[in-house]
Design a binder for these strands. Structure first.
Ligand SMILES: NC(=O)c1ccc[n+]([C@@H]2O[C@H](COP(=O)([O-])OP(=O)(O)OC[C@H]3O[C@@H](n4cnc5c(N)ncnc54)[C@H](O)[C@@H]3O)[C@@H](O)[C@H]2O)c1
Ligand SMILES: NC(=O)c1ccc[n+]([C@@H]2O[C@H](COP(=O)([O-])OP(=O)(O)OC[C@H]3O[C@@H](n4cnc5c(N)ncnc54)[C@H](O)[C@@H]3O)[C@@H](O)[C@H]2O)c1
Lengths: 216, 216
DNA sequence: AAGGTAGTGTGAGTGTTTTCACAATTTTGC
DNA sequence: GCAAAATTGTGAAAACACTCACACTACCTT
C-alpha cells in the first residue's frame, strides 16, 4: 500500500518513536532533537535521523523536530487513528496478563475477544474481554485479522490452521512452537525462554565491557 | 571468554536450535539434516549450516548431523549444565505468569527469588519462588546476576540503579522504559506493545504476498 | 541584520547477516 | 564395489543495517 522502501529495521522502531513523542507532548515539550530522542530511546541519533528521512524532511536544520508535527505525521503513518481488533487464543498465565493489560495506553490495538478450551474460563470476562470456547472460533471471530497465541505449544499448529482458515493475517506467537503458515500470513515469534537464554549466553561469552549492545 | 567470533545473530538462534534438538532426541531421532532443521525452526538451511560452522565441522557430508553429538556440543556451549539463577522484580500480571512458568522445561535458567513493593504479595510463594519486599533487595539478592524487570515503567530507572549497584549484569526489561545503564551491563528489551504495533504496521504497509519474513 | 550556534539530511564508508551455488565427501542401494 | 543420491562447509556475492562526518540551513542573540 505505502512505498515499502522503508527498511524493516526502521519499521520496527517506529512504534517506539511514536510512544516517546507522545510522552514528550504530554510533558508539554514542543521541540526535540535527534540527540535528545537518542538518549531517551537508546538508538543512535544518526540512525534516528536516517529513519525519519525515509519519510521526507520532517525536521528543520538548526532547530530539530516539532513534536506536534512529528507526532501528527506518525499518527497517520502508523494508523493510530483506527483501532485494530485483536483476538487472544489461550487464557492461561500469559493470556490473562495480556487481557488485564490490553495494550490500550497510547496504542492502536485492542484485544476484542478471547478463546480458551477450558470450560471454567469460558463465559468469564477479563479486562472487559469476553472469553468464548475455542469451538466457537469459526462463528465468533468475525473479521479480526490479528491473533495473539498463548496456548500450549502442542496445540499451536492445529489452532493456527483454524485461524488461517478464518482469515487471520498476522499472528503474535508466544508458544515455543515454530508454526507453519502460508506465505501471505505474517508471524512474529516472541520466545521468552529463548530471550532469557540468549541473554545469559551473551553475558557469559561476550566481552562485557564498553559498547552496550542495543536491545532489539 | 570464548572466541567472540560468533555473530550476534547466530548467538540468538542457538537456544532455538538447542531446544529443537532436544525434542528430536526425545523422539528417538539419531540424525538430522540442515534441511529438516530448517523446516522445523523456520531458518534458512544455509544459515543453519553457516551458524554451525562457526563452531567447526559438526556434521558429515552426505549424512547430516548426529543429534546426540550436536546436542552434547550445544549443551556445553550454552552452559546447559549449570543453572543460572534469576531474580524477578515486580510480581504483577506479567511477573506472576513468569513465576508460574519459571522457564524450567529444558532450560538453564531458574527464577530463584522475587521482589515486589506490595505488602500483600510479600511473603507469598508462587511457583516455589519466595517473594520479598523490594526494600530487602540489597540484603537478599546475593550473587544473582540476571534480573527480569516487570514493574511499572515509572519505577524502572530507580530500581535498575539499585540492581546495578548490587552487581546485576543482565536485565530482561519488559517495561516500556528504555533504561539507562553503565556500558558493561547488558539489557534486552522486550516491548510487547511495540511488537504488536509493529506486527500491525507490517500487515498494513508491506506486501503480504509470498516470502514470509522471518520471526525474531 | 549579521554572526554564531545548533542540528538536520545524506553521501559515502563500514560492518553485519543472509543467501547462492557448488566442490567435496559420505552414504546408500544395488 | 560402483554409481547415484544426499548433504555438508564455505567462498563469494548480495542484501541489509549502522555510523561517520560535514555541507547546509534555520534559528537565535545581540
Ligand atoms: N507463562 C510464561 O511465562 C511463558 C513463558 C514462555 C513461554 N510461554 C509459552 O506461552 C504459552 C502459554 O503459556 P501459559 O503459561 O499461559 O500456559 P497456560 O497453560 O497457563 O495457558 C494455556 C491456556 O491455553 C488453553 N488452551 C489449551 N488448549 C487450547 C486450545 N486448543 N484452544 C484454546 N485454548 C487452549 C488452556 O486452557 C490454558 O488456559 C505456552 O506455549 C508456553 O510455552 C509461557
Ligand atoms: N501485562 C502485560 O500484558 C504487559 C504488556 C506490555 C508491557 N507490560 C509492562 O510490563 C510491566 C509490568 O506489567 P504488569 O501488567 O505486570 O503490571 P502490574 O501493575 O500488574 O505489576 C507491577 C508490579 O510491580 C510492583 N511494583 C511496583 N513498584 C515496584 C517497585 N518499586 N519495586 C518492586 N515492585 C514494584 C507492583 O506492586 C505490581 O505487583 C509494566 O511496565 C508494563 O507496562 C505489561
Amino acid at each position: 500500500m505505502d512505498q515499502n522502501k522503508i527498511p524493516q529495521a526502521t519499521a520496527k522502531r517506529l512504534p517506539l518513536y511514536y510512544r516517546f513523542l507522545n510522552n514528550l507532548q504530554m510533558q508539554g515539550k514542543t521541540r526535540v532533537s535527534s540527540k535528545e530522542l537518542s538518549d531517551a530511546v537508546k538508538v543512535d541519533s544518526a540512525t534516528i535521523r536516517r529513519d525519519f528521512s525515509y519519510f521526507g524532511a520532517l525536521g528543520k536544520k538548526g532547530y530539530g523536530y516539532n513534536v506536534e508535527y512529528l507526532l501528527g505525521f506518525f499518527r497517520k503513518t502508523l494508523d493510530q487513528d483506527e483501532i485494530t481488533d485483536v483476538a487472544l487464543i489461550g487464557v492461561g498465565n500469559l493470556g490473562t496478563a495480556f487481557l488485564h493489560y490490553n495494550f490500550m495506553k497510547n496504542n492502536n490495538t485492542k484485544i476484542k475477544i478471547a478463546f480458551d478450551a477450558d470450560d471454567n474460563k469460558v463465559g468469564q470476562t477479563i479486562g472487559g474481554v469476553p472469553i468464548y470456547h475455542i469451538n466457537e472460533l469459526e462463528e465468533r471471530l468475525d473479521d479480526v485479522k490479528v491473533a495473539i497465541l498463548t496456548i500450549p505449544a502442542m496445540e499451536a499448529d492445529r489452532v493456527t490452521e483454524r485461524l488461517v482458515a478464518q482469515g487471520i493475517k498476522g499472528i503474535l506467537n508466544f508458544t515455543p512452537a515454530r508454526i507453519t503458515v502460508p506465505d501471505d500470513i505474517r508471524v512474529h515469534h516472541i520466545d521468552l525462554a529463548v530471550e532469557l537464554q540468549a541473554l545469559v549466553y551473551f553475558l557469559k561469552h561476550y566481552p562485557l565491557e564498553k559498547t552496550e549492545l542495543y536491545s532489539e
